[in-house]
């Protein structure tokens, strides 16, 4: 019985050790995987904040997120001063409840087409996206609508896979930017996110701007007032009248990976 006991012990110890080995292996695997993911994320953040390469690239597929009202107007003003032939095809996205923004974008595209040559024909697309929450919607139903909105955003991003994302808030751009970040992390598509804070923001970033800044998701974040630059040092300050030029310079020197 003594021997038995000893064997019993050994047996138990053996299985204990093999269990340990199994757990150890999976812990190692998890640690390894998460280390890789962390390294990948840090690499992306590091790479994103680097100055852009200067080889002249071909046209870049560009996603332009239109907010509404003032945001759309600011974005279209910006596009009007950029050399649009470098950014094609262009995908405009606006909220499904926003009827005006895409109309205005179409008008801009039409005027571009009239102004210039063959190079721009058929290079613009217009899409609508569900919003996660309408003003005044209850919080319980907004869980469902947020999920729908996220799925829809993912679907659109898979279809578009843009190389450049231009946005200036409001919240519609956040799911798209987060998905773009995951696309980077998983090597699906490297897209550069350019966020231009509204000129109406003088002392505080908007919630969208703040999220992209804190999470370091925007490759370049532009602010139009010096007060914001001193409060958020990683932002790029450009005086209101120059935003278009600066953004354009950065984008033309941009080499997609």
């Amino acid at each position: 019985p003594k021997i038995h006991k000893v064997f019993g012990m050994e047996n138990r110890d053996g299985s204990f050790f093999s269990d340990m080995g199994c757990i150890n292996a999976s812990i190692l695997l998890i640690i390894g995987a998460s280390t890789l993911i962390v390294i990948r994320i840090f690499y992306i953040i590091y790479r994103s904040s680097k100055p852009l390469y200067s080889t002249p690239p071909g046209p870049l597929s560009t996603l332009i997120v239109l907010g509404s009202g003032g945001h759309t107007a600011e974005m279209l003003n910006l596009l009007a001063v950029m050399q649009m032939e470098r950014f094609k095809p262009r995908y405009y996205i606006a909220a499904a409840t926003d009827n005006m923004s895409l109309q205005k974008a179409r008008a801009l595209e039409d005027s571009l087409m009239q102004k210039s040559e063959v190079g721009l024909v058929g290079t613009s697309h217009f899409m609508q996206i569900y919003r996660s929450r309408e003003v005044g919607q209850s919080y319980i139903t907004s869980v469902g609508t947020t999920l729908i909105a996220l799925t829809h955003a993912l679907w659109l991003m898979i279809k578009i896979r843009p190389q450049v994302i231009l946005c200036n808030g409001p919240g519609t751009c956040i799911p798209l930017c987060v998905i773009a970040f995951f696309f980077k992390a998983f090597g699906i598509r490297w897209s550069s996110i350019f966020y231009v804070e509204s000129i109406a923001r003088v002392r505080r970033l908007s919630l969208s701007g703040l999220l992209l800044y804190k999470l370091r998701m925007a490759d370049q974040l532009f602010v139009q007032w010096p007060q914001l630059k001193s409060k958020y040092p990683r932002a790029n300050y450009v005086g209101a009248e120059k935003v278009g030029n600066f953004l354009h310079h950065d984008l033309t020197n941009f080499q997609p990976m």
Binding site: R201, V202, R203, R204, W225, Q227
Partner: peptide, 9 residues
């Protein structure tokens, strides 16, 4: 109310 920021500035 972020609109006041721009007007005040």
């Amino acid at each position: 109310n972020h609109q006041s920021e721009l007007a005040e500035e």
